[in-house]
Design a protein around this nucleic acid. Structure first.
Lengths: 163, 163
DNA sequence: CCGATCTGCAACCGGTCCGGATACAAATGT
DNA sequence: ACATTTGTATCCGGACCGGTTGCAGATCGG
C-alpha cells in the first residue's frame, strides 16, 4: 500500500523543533539537519505550514521560521490538513458498470464507509497537539522506551498498541 | 497525498458481486465487466482474497470465484488486510538526527500516534460487512441519494458525513 | 550601496507504486 | 482433443515522492 507521505512526519518533527526553540527563528538548514534531509524539502513543507497559518517565516539575514501559534493550539490534524492536500483517503475505482446492480450503486456506499474511516483517523490526530508531542519527546530524552505508548494511552484511551 | 490504492474498492465491489451471485461461480471476465477494468487486475486481487480465505476459486471450464464465507462474516477490515499488505499507514522519515533532542526521540512518539490513528480507521472498517454493503447497494438500486450516509450512520453512529 | 544570508520556487532526476495489457503455461470439464 | 478459465510473468505509461541544483528576491549589516 502506498503510505501517507513522510511530509506529515517531517512537519511534526519540525514543529516540535520550533516549539523547542520557541524564541528564536530557525533556518531551514538547521531543521534539515535535525530531520536529516535536504533544506529545500524542509522549505517546501514550511510553505504548506505557512499557508495554513501554523508558522511564520522570514527571509534574509537572521531569518528563519517560528511558530505562529502556541504549541498547544496546533493539533496533528491541523498539520495533516496542511501538508496532505488530498481530501479522500481511499481511492475509488473509476466508472463501475452502470448497467449492473452492483456497479450502479457501489460508489456511494464505498464513499460513505471510506469517509467515516478517514474521519475516525483524523479524530485521533485532532486530539494530539504539538505541545503533547514536544513534551513526550522531552520526557523521554535519550530513552528508547514506550514514549509513544504512554502518550497515546493518555490522550486517546487504552486501545491496544499493536493489535 | 497518495491514497490507499483502488484495490480496496475493487475488492469490495467484487465481493458484493459474489454475494449477489452467491450460488454460482463467477469468472474474472464477468467481474471485470462490472468493475470496468481488466480481467487480470481482478484475478490479481482475487489471489489476495483467496490467500486470505475470503473466496475460493476454481480454474477450468465452468470455473470462477465464490465466497468462502457468509457475506455477514466478511468485514471490510478483512478485505483491507487482504489487499493492502502494508502494516503502517503513515510513513516515518528515515534516520532523524540522533544527536539532537528532537530527532533522537521523535520516531517513537510519531509511531505511537500514527498507529492509533491507523487503528481508529481500521475500527470503522471492522464494523462493516460485505452483507451490509450488499444490502445497501440493493436497497438503493438505481437511486443516487444518501445510501452511504444511511449505512454509516446506522453502523458507526452519527458523525458528520463531510465535516 | 554591496555583500552575505536566507527564503521561494522552478526544474529535473531516479525510485517506487499502480493499473492496464499481452502472452503463455496449467488446470479443468465435456 | 478442445474450449474455458485461472495463475503468473512481463512490460508499459503515468503519478507521486524525495533529493538536488540553480537562481531570483528579500533582508540585514557594514
Amino acid at each position: 500500500m502506498s503510505t501517507i507521505s513522510s511530509r506529515m512526519a517531517v512537519a511534526v518533527h519540525v514543529l516540535a523543533y520550533l516549539a523547542w526553540r520557541r524564541d528564536e527563528p530557525v533556518t531551514s538548514e538547521r531543521m534539515a539537519g535535525s530531520v536529516n534531509t535536504n533544506a529545500v524539502v524542509v522549505r517546501r513543507i514550511m510553505g504548506s505550514l505557512r499557508n495554513a497559518g501554523l508558522v511564520s517565516v522570514q527571509p534574509g539575514v537572521g531569518g528563519g521560521a517560528q511558530l505562529a501559534r502556541e504549541p498547544q493550539d496546533i493539533t496533528l490534524l491541523d498539520v495533516y490538513r496542511a501538508v496532505e492536500e488530498k481530501e479522500e483517503l481511499f481511492a475509488l475505482h473509476s466508472e463501475p458498470c452502470r448497467h449492473c446492480d452492483i456497479g450502479s450503486n457501489i460508489r456511494q456506499v464505498l464513499q460513505g464507509v471510506f469517509c467515516q474511516a478517514h474521519q475516525a483517523m483524523q479524530g485521533v490526530l485532532g486530539e494530539v497537539t504539538i505541545a503533547d508531542v514536544f513534551r513526550q519527546v522531552q520526557v523521554h530524552g535519550g530513552g528508547c522506551g514506550g514514549a509513544a505508548r504512554e502518550l497515546v494511552d493518555e490522550l486517546v484511551g487504552a486501545q491496544a498498541h499493536h493489535a
